[in-house]
């Protein structure tokens, strides 16, 4: 009887905790952009970079950076609370190697609920740079950068609480490419004035 009682009580509790856990995981993954459909472009690209710093690695990262070293302390602050950094970048030798549908597969996700386009800069020389933020209420839950030009397609996705200042600090680190976010930000500000 005792074991039956345990089963009776434990089973719903276990089921409930499983449901709660999956709901939490689903919520945390809201700002994760699916980029797998771009993988086929690697066969056409002259340079492909694929960075996957998932939640396990981000937890590891926050552990291994020291509090005593000023640089590392700064990095630690920047990555605090982040749940992932994902980058896919393709460079091509010729124009037109990727399809509009490839870009659309990313943009369509960024039109979903919560996402707001913060930066949209088009330049003949440097192509189109778009920066999106995902808001969970008043909190930022993630960020996505889409950079396209005739011979390049780059998607950066940062999952977790992040802002543009943080992104600028991450450029050139953790596999995040130099995107010139700082310059684009100041350009956007000047244009608005």
């Amino acid at each position: 009887m005792k074991s039956l009682f345990h089963i009776n009580i434990r089973t719903p509790l276990l089921a409930l905790s499983l449901i709660v856990t999956s709901a939490l995981v689903a919520k945390a993954q809201d700002s994760r952009i699916q980029m797998g459909n771009l993988d086929y472009l690697a066969a056409k690209a002259s340079q492909t970079v694929d960075v996957n710093l998932d939640e396990r690695l981000m937890r590891l990262a926050s552990k291994v950076f020291s509090d005593t070293d000023a640089d590392e302390r700064e990095v630690k602050k920047v990555i605090a609370g982040l749940k992932g950094i994902y980058v896919k970048s393709f460079e091509f030798d010729a124009d037109g190697q990727y399809a509009a549908a490839d870009v659309e597969s990313i943009r369509s996700q960024l039109r979903g609920p919560g996402w707001t386009r913060l930066v949209n800069v088009t330049s003949k020389k440097e192509g189109i740079l778009e920066v999106y933020l995902l808001f969970n209420g008043e909190q930022v839950g993630g960020l996505a950068v889409l950079h396209t030009d005739d011979r390049e397609l780059t998607v950066v996705n940062i999952v977790g609480p992040v802002d543009l200042d943080k992104l600028a600090k991450l450029e050139g680190q953790f596999g995040v490419p130099e995107l010139g976010i700082e310059q684009q930000k100041s350009k956007t500000k000047k244009d608005e004035q």
């Binding site: 492909t48 970079v49 694929d50 960075v51 996957n52 710093l53 690695l57």
Partner: peptide
């Protein structure tokens, strides 16, 4: 855990 993959 896959960290980074580059193809050139």
């Amino acid at each position: 855990m896959p960290l980074i993959q580059t193809l050139s």
